[in-house]
Write a protein that binds this DNA or RNA. Structure first.
Lengths: 227, 227
DNA sequence: CGCACGCATCTACCATACAAGATTGAGGAA
DNA sequence: TTCCTCAATCTTGTATGGTAGATGCGTGCG
């Protein structure tokens, strides 16, 4: 597989390689279990081994690569247990966020309504990518409203694991249903109903759960064996 | 300041430098705002710039260093807002953990009682360091009992920010009170009282909150200005 | 035939040299 | 005095060569 040159930019080579590799991994162009090497990637992107090496370190810390010293570097297989726990973390934080927002709705209602309207537009136009972006923005906005945007950044880091699974289930998810659930959350927030908002958020996040086992069955070699 | 050589070990140089620098930062031997350079650290530890550089990258991703390209690398100042949000994350996750454990106590009661007994021994012997270790183990054990030990690892990463604050308030904290609160949590867990366990955990974590503003007042130059 | 040894050949790790942006301070002109 | 210019000298970024450990395969011995 040949890869186009990295476009020139302000950032350093190392960071550009990080971005390029992350995209390849999340979109499954690089598959879990694939063996890569510094020289290999360096050659493909037309840079030296040094920035590639630093990119490997960053991606390894984010859980996307596994560096086996003096042996090889491989694209980390998806850990079912890791996915489960990433969801646990996300649910813990998002539930706490929605509680806080519901406790002091402020101008949340108007902001959320606008976002949901945008999602309906994207969904009607079959703009899957746009919808995904707005979906993410919905959750990020809730974090901002709760005054903990930094916490969302944390979720974002660990969300890459989930994004790989999401990519494997593309098309399966129903944006209609997601929008309905978003409305339910927004309504509970507007009403200041903490308990209701929490329950709605839990239900919203739980929906993705059922897809995992099916995905594992479809692509068993992309996942770590249970031990 | 001169630093002893790194003891020989199996791991790579880069990882040893990471550990050494992390300790220096958390214990405030390297103070927030201090300017360091790859060459400087390399000379002090007797290695080349390369492993030091890789250590910098890792520590920067963990939020302890700030790399300003072509300029300098500095020990990141503590962000009061970051501390607040790190606590938010920790509370979110720990509350969810304690709920799960309380919902299925299992053999939690015996395990927790044993840990608390150890803490009392350490406290009676004025073994502050040992008590701290057992305190951490208490929370980690709860995560294990909930089946989400990986989630604790996440907290651990972001706990370094909090540890720097904790180091500044050493001696202030009362281990007696912490033990009493641990007992309260364990009792609620044993009784299967989810709501009570959650409330006890929130109170336990909230106790540290009051110390922050005092600490900022004592060491204003260690913290980022509010913007 | 089966197994152990050794060598060719991978890998990531580390050291060193060079490149290029950023800072600082000295020195000269207005 | 004040301000601008520029060069010395910091910094991190990148390239490349050499090193040591791990792997796999072929060979030769039992």
């Amino acid at each position: 597989m040949t890869v186009g040159e990295l476009e020139a930019s302000e950032e350093t080579m190392a960071l550009r390689v990080v971005g390029a590799l992350r995209d390849e991994i999340v979109t499954m162009a690089l598959k879990p279990g694939d063996v890569i090497s510094e020289s290999d990637i360096a050659g493909r992107y037309g840079v030296s081994r040094q920035p590639v090496r630093e990119a490997f370190i960053r991606l390894a810390q984010q859980g996307l690569l596994l560096i086996r010293p003096k042996r090889a570097t491989i694209v980390k297989k998806i850990s079912p247990d890791g996915v489960r726990q990433s969801r646990f973390i996300r649910e813990s934080i998002e539930v706490e966020i929605i509680r806080r927002v519901a406790a002091r709705p402020g101008d949340a209602e108007a902001v959320l309504a606008e976002l949901i309207a945008g999602q309906e537009t994207a969904s009607a136009a079959d703009d899957n990518l746009g919808f995904h972006a707005l979906d993410e923005l919905f959750h990020r906005t809730l974090a901002r409203l709760a005054g903990v945007e930094y916490a969302w950044q944390l979720i974002d880091d660990h969300k890459m694991q989930l994004d790989r699974v999401r990519f494997l289930t593309l098309g399966v998810s129903s944006s209609q249903r997601a929008i309905a659930e978003h409305k339910e959350i927004a309504a509970a927030v507007a009403a200041g109903d903490s308990a209701g908002a929490e329950a709605a958020m839990r239900a919203h996040l739980a929906r993705a759960e059922v897809l995992l086992s099916q995905t594992i069955a479809d692509h068993p070699d992309y996942f770590e064996p249970v031990h």
